[in-house]
Every structure is written in structure tokens, then in C-alpha cells.
Design a protein around this nucleic acid. Structure first.
Length: 475
RNA sequence: GCUCCCAUCGUCUAGCCUGGUCUAGGACACCGCCUUUUCACGGCGGUAACAGGGGUUCAAAUCCCCUUGGGAGUACCA
């Protein structure tokens, strides 16, 4: 049987970093087994679902390199892949359940429900204790009320037995009889509910494995019941550990940037993001940490998931991004820098050979492309950065000599840039003729030429700085 | 409250299934040294963990139980 795994986001917002990880695991597993990875859109929440979010999520998934074999945007033999387009099927199945005595219409109003829940709470019973008021209503009577247009939901009749299944990451999990009550499968507005249509679709779409976050673990109890009513064999479940924030709570917006879109916009490399995300809850058998997850092949499997939740740590993500950045060519780095700096930046105005040299020099200095912003002043700002070390160097008695000599040399030049060789010659002159050496020589030249005590390799920096800037610094 | 899940350095984790090779390995972060006559990169080194208590066993991070702690769910959201 060929493996089929799906990722089923609901388009109520941008793709969450945790969702991306589940998608990644699903995709990686499908590919490891030579199976298919399917994208299904769960848009049964009418108020919150938006097509623009669906488009954005698909875009982000593709950006990460997670390409689906079937989905709403490309079809497939198990379509449609948007739940809003499968409504009739859910309704038919729900009413079939009703006819088979597995489900029933329920006429509880929301006010009644509230009172009942309160009552259950007071009596320290499960909140769902009284949800079954209409479970034994005569079916003909129920039908009559439904036909008369009375508002109703359809509830699934909990058969009242223990449920056990073997989770791929957690092992055997058992739920007690009264874990859930008679739960709603069709809302009063006619829309099916997650636990129902998810199962219908996973079954109809031939899913063999389901990867989802641990928060869904308890839902499996309800879902198992639906599978049974469907006479279907449930897929294998893998409930992956949760991603949490610094406070150990489920990762959410208040923890900072949690959508893939944000990372894309901040200039993170998709390979770095997937690399880091994969390692939050899964480990490489060879204890490798920097690798392209898309090249994992059959190395990826579900035996190496960790069961405990993982704290999302942006510092480590940044480290991964840094490692991935280092592997890029100078051209690619240049493109990234330009993206971060903008097309009207000083960087963008330079020619290709300058950009490449600059990129080769600066790529070791950044974790993110956007970090380059902090380094631009060395090249384009004529004003000095007067920190302690700068002040010290500028006060050395030899520094005025250095500056005077450098100024005389630079002012003679009519080129746009100084060459590395010229800087070398000046250095030699200062050393031989003026007998300046050691720190006063090197640091002296640096502060005069670059206006600051720190920076990348002196000759290279100077050769990349517009001569007009250098002249201003020496004036 | 009830149900379910989880528990190794501050963090991500290896090891656990198939007890001994674990004075617990790697990575991030942090600190120090070297390198760089700056900064960074890099190299080397360091601090730092088996939640607690009982068993089982010649032997337990590894198996069992309890306690404690954390998390998730408990919806006509997904």
C-alpha cells in the first residue's frame, strides 16, 4: 500500500511555524516512503476562513520546499481538496449515521446548553454529562421536528466504551468510556465539525498516516469512534510534540514572530528554517545538525521523534541561518544583501564586481542578510564612530602624522576607489620613512581611513570605500 | 475538577526499547585561551543535566511503582 500523508491547515491566518513543522514531518515521511503528500484545506469555519490565507499558506509551504502532490490548487483524483466543496458528502454521511442509529438530531439551544454545562460543573461532572438529552428521542418525532425547520445539530452517539490505539510516537494510548460525550458532528448552520470531516476526508482520501501536533491527541478518541461508524480502518497516528515558548506554553503570537511569512520577510533562508524546525523534536541518526532536510531521503522516520515539547529558540535558528548563509556563493550573498538594503541603497548603486568583493568580505559577519545594515557605515558614512578605542587611537602622538601623510596621498588620487596595493604602499612608507610601526601604524591607519576602531580587513575595506568618503574623513 | 501526554546541561537533544562500554556524548547560548597588530570567522578549552522517592537486579539515565513538576484537551475552533 502506498503511503499517503496529508497536511490539513485551516486558512484562518498565516502558516504557523508549528504547522510548518508538522507539514514538514508529513512531507518528509511521505517522501521517505516513496508515497504521496497531500494538502487539504479545512475551511469549515465560515467566519474565520479566508481564501487569501489559503493562498499565503500554500505560498509559504512552497517557499519552504514542501511541495504537495495533490491539493486545492492542483487537483488530484481524491478531490476536491477544500472541505467547503465537500459539504454534501458530510451531510449525507451524517444523515446515514442518523438512519443507522449512530447519531441523532439534537434540539438543545445554546442557552440550554449553557445551563446544562453549569449544572454539570456544579455537580463536578464532566461538562458533556448532559449533552445527550435527545439521544433517545423517537426518531420519527425527531424527523418531524427537523422537517418542520426546527434548529438542530447532529450529535454522534458515543457508544460508551474504552478506546485504545497505538500512537507512532507515544505508544499505546487509552481513553476511558466517558472521555467525551455525544459530540456534535453537524452544526446548526449545517457545517460539519473538524473531528467529523477530518475523519471522513482522511478515510475518503486514503490516508495511511496522520502526523499532527500533540494538542490533537485527545481528539483521537472522538475520531476513532467516527472511523468505526464508517467501518473504516483508522490510519496510523503520530502525535508530534508541541512547540512551546519561553514560558513553556504552546507557541503563539504573543511569543513573537510565529508565522513563516514573517521569517520569509525577515530574510531567513528556507533551508535554514526547515533544518532548524526538523530538529525541534526529531533527531538525525548520525547526530548531524546542519543538513538539507530535503535530502534526508529514507533517513527520516518516525522512530526518532522526541515525546516532550520543544522550546522554540530564535538564537539557535539564527545560528542555523548563519551556517546556511556561509554555504552561499558571493553572487547569492550579494543578492541577499541587496534585498535587505533596498534597491535605492548605496550598495545597490555599486557595480557587480564591487558587490561580489563586498559580499565575500562581509558574509562572515552576519547571521541574517539584514544584519548587514549595521555594517554599512564603515563604507559609506564619513562621520567617525568615536568609541573609547577610537579616541585612544586618535590621541596617539603619531596619529596626526599618519593622517597628514594619508591625506596628502589620497588627495592626489583622481580614481573612484583606492586600491589595496596603494594602501600597502602607504603602510610601507609610514613604517620605513616615518618609523611608525605596531599598533600606532595599523590602528592609526584604521581610524584615519575608516573613522572607527573596528571593522573588517583594513585593505579590503578601504578598497571598497568610495574615495570621496575617505577624503572627508581625512579632511 | 476530570481526561490524556510528558520529564537528561539554561535551551535543542544522543543514550532508554535490547540494563553494565555513561566518571552521561553533541549542538545553541555563555565564559576563557589561541589566531587576527581591530572586529568577526575559525581553532582549542571550560561551566552546566539523568526531577524526587521507593522497588527489581550483582549492576538502572536505561525496567516497574508512587510523588512532584510541566503541558495539552475538556466547544456548534481547528
Amino acid at each position: 500500500m502506498t503511503v499517503r500523508v496529508r497536511f490539513a491547515p485551516s486558512p484562518t491566518g498565516y502558516l504557523h511555524i508549528g504547522g510548518a513543522r508538522t507539514a514538514l514531518y508529513s512531507y518528509l515521511f511521505a517522501k521517505a516512503k516513496g508515497g504521496q503528500y497531500i494538502l487539504r484545506v479545512e475551511d469549515t469555519d465560515l467566519e474565520r476562513s479566508k481564501r487569501e490565507f489559503e493562498d499565503a499558506q500554500i505560498g509559504d509551504l512552497l517557499w519552504l520546499g514542501i511541495e504537495h502532490d495533490e491539493g486545492p490548487d492542483k487537483g488530484g483524483e481524491f478531490g476536491p481538496y477544500r472541505q467547503s466543496e465537500r459539504m454534501q458528502m458530510y451531510k449525507d454521511i451524517a444523515w446515514d449515521f442518523v438512519e443507522r442509529g449512530l447519531a441523532y438530531p439534537c434540539f438543545l439551544t445554546s442557552e440550554e446548553l449553557e445551563t446544562l454545562t453549569e449544572k454539570a460543573n456544579e455537580e463536578k461532572k464532566a461538562p458533556h454529562a448532559y449533552h445527550g438529552k435527545y439521544r433517545d428521542l423517537d426518531s420519527a418525532e425527531a424527523k418531524k421536528r427537523v422537517d418542520a425547520g426546527e434548529e438542530h445539530v447532529i450529535r454522534f452517539k458515543n457508544p460508551g466504551k474504552k478506546w485504545t490505539f497505538t500512537d507512532l510516537v507515544r505508544g499505546e494510548v487509552t481513553f476511558p468510556e466517558d472521555m467525551v460525550g455525544d459530540f456534535v458532528i453537524i452544526r446548526s448552520n449545517g457545517m460539519p465539525v473538524y473531528n467529523f470531516c477530518c475523519v471522513v476526508d482522511d478515510h475518503k482520501m486514503g490516508m495511511t498516516h496522520v502526523f499532527r501536533a500533540e494538542e490533537h491527541l485527545n481528539n483521537t478518541c472522538r475520531q476513532l469512534q467516527i472511523y468505526e461508524a464508517l467501518n473504516a480502518t483508522p490510519p496510523e497516528f503520530a502525535h508530534v510534540s508541541l512547540l512551546v515558548g519561553e514560558d513553556r506554553q504552546k507557541l503563539s503570537k504573543r511569543h513573537g514572530a510565529t508565522s513563516v511569512t514573517q521569517y520569509k520577510e525577515m530574510g531567513y533562508l528556507p533551508g535554514a528554517v526547515t533544518n532548524y524546525l526538523t530538529l525541534l523534536g526529531w533527531s538525525h541518526p548520525d547526530e548531524q545538525d546542519i543538513f538539507d532536510v530535503l535530502d534526508l531521503g529514507d533517513v527520516f522516520d518516525y522512530t526518532r521523534f522526541s515525546k516532550s515539547s520543544a522550546m522554540y529558540d530564535i538564537k539557535k535558528l539564527n545560528f542555523f541561518n548563519e551556517q546556511w548563509l556561509r554555504k552561499l556563493s558571493d553572487e547569492e550573498i550579494a543578492k541577499g544583501f541587496e534585498g535587505a538594503l533596498g534597491s535605492d541603497s548605496e550598495f545597490a548603486k555599486q557595480d557587480d564586481s564591487w558587490k561580489q568583493k563586498f559580499s565575500a568580505l562581509m558574509k562572515e559577519k552576519v547571521q541574517l542578510f539584514s544584519d548587514i545594515k549595521e555594517h554599512m557605515a564603515v563604507f559609506f558614512n564619513s562621520a567617525a564612530d568615536e568609541d573609547e578605542q577610537y579616541k585612544e587611537a586618535i590621541s596617539w602622538e603619531t596619529t596626526p602624522q599618519v593622517k597628514e601623510y594619508l591625506a596628502s596621498q589620497v588627495n592626489e588620487l583622481t580614481t573612484e576607489f583606492i586600491t589595496e596595493e596603494q594602501v600597502g604602499e602607504w603602510m610601507n612608507y609610514l613604517k620605513k620613512e616615518l618609523k611608525i610601526k605596531g599598533k600606532p601604524l595599523f590602528m592609526g591607519m584604521r581610524v584615519c581611513l575608516t573613522g572607527r576602531a573596528h571593522g573588517p580587513d583594513l585593505k579590503t575595506v578601504v578598497a571598497l570605500t568610495p574615495i570621496s568618503i575617505v577624503k572627508e574623513r581625512l579632511s
